[in-house]
C-alpha cells in the first residue's frame, strides 16, 4: 500500500514517520508540501508531529488552514485513510476533520515519557492488528494533549465507538477527558492520536507495540 507524509514548516517528526512507513510497508512514502493542492494516489496520508508554525495562535491552527489540508479533506471524503499523530492530531481537530479540541496539559508542563494505551476499538482500519482491550506501550511528547469535547458530542462518539485509544493504568499524562488518547472520525477512516507509535516499531526502540497501527493501516498485519 502506498502512503504519503505531509510536511509543513515546524513539523519535525516527519523523518521518524517516513522511516516507520518505509520499514513497515517496504516502500518509502511520498512527501507532500503544505502548498500542494493535489495529493498523489495513496492509501494512507500521515500528518506527523512537531510544532507547525511554532504553535502560534493555537497548536495546529495555522497549519489546518493551509492549502494541503483542503486536498487531504477531499481525499478523506473519498475514503482514503488519514492518520494524524501529535501535532497531526491537533491539526485534524483544528481543521474540523475530528471532533473536540486539544488544550494545554493540565500540569502545564511538556511531557515526554512512555505511557500505556488501551485499544478501546480494535475494529478500525488502524487497530485491527490489536485485540480489543489490549494494553500497549507508547511514547508521548507534547504540551497540548488535553483532549476536550462537549458532552453531547462525546455521547455520540461513544455510541459510535469513536474513542480508539485511552491512556491506561493511571498513565494519563495531560488531564485528557476520560483518558482519551486517540479518536476516529464518524466514517472511521481518519484517526488522530497524541502518542507517537512511529517511535516504538523496532527492537532498537525498546519494543514494537506501535507497529500494529501502521501494519493495520497499510494492510500488512501478517508480514
Amino acid at each position: 500500500m502506498k502512503s504519503a507524509v505531509v510536511q509543513l514548516p515546524g513539523l519535525n517528526r516527519d523523518r521518524d514517520m517516513i522511516a516507520a512507513l518505509t520499514r513497515i510497508s517496504g516502500q518509502a512514502p511520498v512527501t507532500v508540501w503544505q502548498t500542494e493542492t493535489e495529493i498523489p494516489d495513496v492509501d494512507l496520508i500521515v500528518i506527523p508531529g512537531g510544532f507547525s508554525y511554532g504553535d502560534y495562535l493555537r497548536c495546529g491552527a495555522i497549519a489546518a488552514r493551509m492549502p494541503v489540508m483542503q486536498a487531504i479533506r477531499e481525499k478523506a471524503e473519498k475514503g482514503v485513510k488519514v492518520l494524524g499523530v501529535c501535532n497531526g492530531f491537533q491539526i485534524l481537530v483544528e481543521a474540523g476533520m475530528l471532533p473536540g479540541a486539544l488544550m494545554r496539559n493540565s500540569s502545564l508542563k511538556f511531557v515526554c515519557k512512555q505511557v500505556k494505551l488501551e485499544v478501546v476499538n480494535a475494529e478500525t482500519d488502524f487497530t485491527r492488528a490489536y485485540a480489543p482491550g489490549q494494553i500497549i506501550r507508547c511514547p508521548v511528547a507534547h504540551h497540548d494533549g488535553n483532549y476536550f469535547v462537549e458532552a453531547e458530542t462525546l455521547k455520540a462518539m461513544n455510541d459510535r465507538n469513536q474513542v480508539v485509544f485511552r491512556y491506561a493504568e493511571g498513565t494519563n499524562p495531560n488531564g485528557s477527558m476520560l483518558d482519551i488518547a486517540g479518536v476516529v472520525n464518524e466514517a472511521g477512516n481518519v484517526l488522530g492520536m497524541m502518542p507517537h507509535p512511529e517511535n516504538l516499531i523496532e527492537a532498537a526502540h525498546g519494543g514494537t507495540d506501535g507497529r500494529g497501527i501502521f501494519a493495520s493501516a497499510l494492510d500488512v498485519i501478517a508480514a
Partner: peptide, 9 residues
C-alpha cells in the same frame, strides 16, 4: 469563526 477562535472551546 474561521481562525481567531476555536469555537469548540
Amino acid at each position: 469563526e474561521k481562525l481567531l477562535a476555536n469555537t469548540v472551546i
